[in-house]
Design a protein around this nucleic acid. Structure first.
Length: 454
RNA sequence: GUGGUUGUAGCUCAGUUGGUUAGAGCGUCGGUUUGUGGUACCGAAAGUCGUGGGUUCGAGCCCCAUCUUCCACCCCA
């Protein structure tokens, strides 16, 4: 049988693990610098915790876990006959793999509300699973790195999250990312103005294609989706949205003046943008984007998305937003949350494409002892124990193989030093230390050996 | 979920209009004086051509199905 792994999953080599660890540590350090604490939740949750939280499309993408035992015996015969997959699923599967980190976090907050001090700032770095069709930068198992705050409605949180994005991407050497920001209340305002709440998504999807297909085609698409010509006329400013953030905000304010909610959204957005601009960003660009409509299912205020530097073909490498009532689903009202997510796997691909990985030190021994046989190995192991006690990564070649093979092994693994111990060395109680880079070799005592390698 | 694309040694790929025993480079292993690596030279192993059917005297090449890869939708990190 040919070995293989499921589609959309990957193995990681030692180098890849080292690079991923570097990214994760950069993110975790930033999270903690901003005052977040780590938690972890199970890989799988009860189905009803997850189902219905991400919309119909989300439900389809959730990996369901089959019940143990003779699960069909307990299922409804009629549903089996009718091949009703949807209803049958709820009978034969009670658990599902985590789809994101936000909903499990909401569950965690409600379940542990008595132990939590609010506002609660938590971070979480764990894999999530989606039964999506894989593409570049799109996997069925991938890592999210989330930071969220619950229990505060303050817009200062939004400001800090933008700074957090900026901090992490700057630290990673990834400059000129674009942090796009929108506000759900603005979207609602637009819907109000065009007089069709249910057509809002069609509207934003069409508007998003503006720089690809042009105003003419966008308007045609809107008309074909049933949006009136009159409505399109009202939101005309959106088609010439090329000014500075503050000019765009002014245009939005004017356009949404008749909508109370829309006006509130513009005010919120204005505060966040003005404050961030005032405080300054290190390397990221901040940009108002009214077409940002992600997570429409639960976001209620700010919506974030981070795009990779121009020229890199990659979907968003981060996203987030504010949700005023996420814990409401689990019976805890009036707890506002806001958070962001970093897409580890996509960030990896972007850094790789731009050649931004610093040469990471692979975990490898500093010194390899050549193995000549049992006596020599024993003598070597005594030295190795001493070296390891000093924290020096040391290793004995496990077999008394040909010297050429052992040297070759040291070479391939880029081990800096080799110690050669044969009967000559044992008799004189010395060690022959060879520097594999310069080729020099010297005879030395154990204490000298420790000094050299320390 | 819809439409398209890809699949030949461990890796990167050749393989002409279907015609005998399917090739290369890199890597692996062995050798070129049995205690000294990187370079060089010599040699070897390794593929039921993604899988399963079909057409044909004959299929790596044509047809169907399926899996995988990548791409565009959809959605998203």
């Amino acid at each position: 049988m040919k070995p293989s792994i499921p589609k959309g999953t990957r193995d990681f080599s030692p180098t890849e693990v080292a690079n991923r660890t570097y990214i994760i540590n950069t993110i975790k350090t930033a999270f903690e610098t901003f005052g977040f604490q780590p938690i972890e939740t199970p890989s799988f949750e009860n189905s009803d915790t997850l189902m219905g939280k991400y919309g119909d499309e989300g439900d389809r993408l959730i990996f369901k876990i089959l019940n143990s035992g003779d699960f069909l015996a307990k299922a409804d015969d009629k549903l089996i006959q009718e091949k009703d997959s949807l209803k049958l699923t709820s009978q034969i599967s009670e658990k599902a793999l985590r789809y994101d980190l936000t909903v499990p976090f909401a569950r965690y907050v409600v379940q542990h509300q008595n132990e939590i001090t609010f506002p609660f700032k938590r971070y979480q770095v764990q894999p999530v699973w989606r039964a999506d069709r894989p593409q570049k930068g799109r996997f069925r198992e991938f890592y999210q790195c989330d930071a969220d705050v619950v229990g505060s409605q303050s817009l200062w949180q939004e400001v800090e999250f933008i700074q957090l994005y900026d901090t992490v991407f700057t630290k990673l050497g990834l400059s000129e990312t674009t942090i796009k920001i929108n506000n759900r209340k603005i979207l609602s305002g637009i819907a109000e103005v065009i007089g069709a709440q249910d057509k809002l998504i069609d509207f934003t999807v069409a508007l998003d294609k503006l720089d690809k297909i042009g105003q003419q085609k966008v308007q045609e698409e809107m008309l074909s989706k049933g949006i009136t010509e009159e409505a399109i006329e009202k939101v005309q400013p959106l088609f010439s949205f090329n000014g500075t953030n503050s000019e765009n905000l002014d245009a939005l304010a004017l356009m949404l003046a008749t909508s109370e909610e829309g006006t509130k959204g513009v005010e919120e957005l204005r505060f966040v943008i003005n404050t961030v601009t005032n405080l300054g960003l290190q390397s990221a660009n901040l940009e108002v984007d009214v077409t940002l409509a992600r997570g429409l299912n639960y976001y209620t205020g700010a919506i974030f998305e981070v795009a990779a530097p121009k020229g890199v073909k990659m979907g968003s490498i981060g996203g987030g937003g504010r949700y005023d009532d996420l814990t409401g689903i689990f019976g805890m009202k009036d707890v506002s949350g806001v958070g962001i997510s970093f897409g580890l796997d996509r960030i990896y691909l972007v850094l790789e494409e731009l050649g931004l990985f610093k040469s990471v030190d692979l975990p490898k021994p500093k010194v390899l002892f050549v193995n000549f046989g049992e006596n020599e190995a024993l003598y070597s192991m005594k030295a190795i124990s001493k070296l390891r006690a000093k924290g020096i990564k040391s290793e004995l070649f496990p077999d008394a193989a040909k010297m050429k093979k052992q040297m070759n092994y040291a070479n391939k693994r880029e081990i800096e030093f080799v110690v050669i111990v044969g009967s000559q060395e044992i008799d004189n109680e010395v060690y022959t230390l060879k520097n594999m880079i310069s080729g020099e070799q010297t005879k030395c005592s154990l204490s000298e050996l420790i000094n050299e390698l320390h």
